Simulated scan of single mutants.
Amino acid sequence: MEKINQLKQYVSEQLSTDTTGHDYTHIQRVADLAKTISKKTEQSDLLIALTASYLHDVIDDKLVDDTNEKQKEVQSKLKELDYTSEQIDEVMDIITHMSYSANLKHHYELTINGQIVQDADRLDAIGAIGVARAMYFGGHFGDAIYDPAQMPRNDMDKSQYREHTTVINHFYEKLFKLPDLMNTSVAKQMADRRSQYMHDFVREFKDEWQGIH
């Protein structure tokens, strides 16, 4: 896993200034979750799963201005670390197609390794950490926490999804949907507890907002 150790340094440098909840600590949690899921999933390749886990936000269009240039940079980095062309192709396929926004209108069929990384990333978007990251992300972009008059949106394309909403609406527009979108049986089980926590949080939030208790 020397390749992974070198990759960690690169990714840490790339995301060192992030204040949106997509920093290196998020990456490390995704990698840890991917490792857990991979070990319990047949026909998975841990090297590919970990590599894609570490790189998935480096090329994210929420975080970089020129995604094409960043993708070329990532490919060059993988070549430098002696990944094969087949490995590089799979990693790039995963990280360019795994996001929630990329699958709003078309469900992209990922490899088993891609499914593992997608599940790991989505697990880190829900539960207690998911609540904290949603608030952190919304605060970074100046979004309102809640507006009862602003209803959650449905059936969005990527450009509509990228338009900012309230933090609480984000739970309905994305986060509550993620548990049902998990690919692996391992992730589905892990999502249950986290999902319950989110629903309890939003229910309590709305009660307190209304002064019920």
Rank of each mutant, 00 (worst) to 15 (best):
residue 4 I to E: 13
residue 6 Q to V: 01
residue 9 Q to M: 10
residue 13 E to Y: 10
residue 21 G to D: 10
residue 21 G to E: 12
residue 22 H to T: 04
residue 23 D to W: 06
residue 36 T to F: 06
residue 38 S to G: 08
residue 42 E to P: 03
residue 53 S to M: 02
residue 54 Y to L: 01
residue 55 L to W: 12
residue 55 L to S: 12
residue 57 D to S: 13
residue 57 D to L: 09
residue 62 K to G: 13
residue 64 V to W: 04
residue 64 V to E: 06
residue 68 N to E: 09
residue 68 N to K: 14
residue 71 Q to V: 01
residue 72 K to L: 09
residue 75 Q to Y: 05
residue 75 Q to V: 08
residue 78 L to E: 05
residue 92 M to P: 03
residue 94 I to Y: 05
residue 99 S to Y: 11
residue 101 S to G: 02
residue 102 A to E: 15
residue 109 E to P: 01
residue 110 L to A: 07
residue 119 D to G: 11
residue 121 D to W: 14
residue 123 L to H: 03
residue 126 I to V: 02
residue 128 A to M: 08
residue 129 I to T: 13
residue 136 Y to M: 07
residue 140 H to I: 00
residue 141 F to L: 10
residue 143 D to T: 13
residue 145 I to M: 12
residue 148 P to F: 02
residue 153 R to L: 13
residue 156 M to A: 05
residue 158 K to W: 09
residue 161 Y to T: 05
residue 165 T to V: 09
residue 167 V to M: 09
residue 174 K to D: 04
residue 178 L to G: 06
residue 179 P to C: 10
residue 179 P to I: 06
residue 181 L to Q: 14
residue 183 N to Q: 12
residue 189 Q to P: 01
residue 190 M to L: 15
residue 205 F to C: 03
residue 210 Q to H: 11
residue 210 Q to L: 10
residue 213 H to K: 08
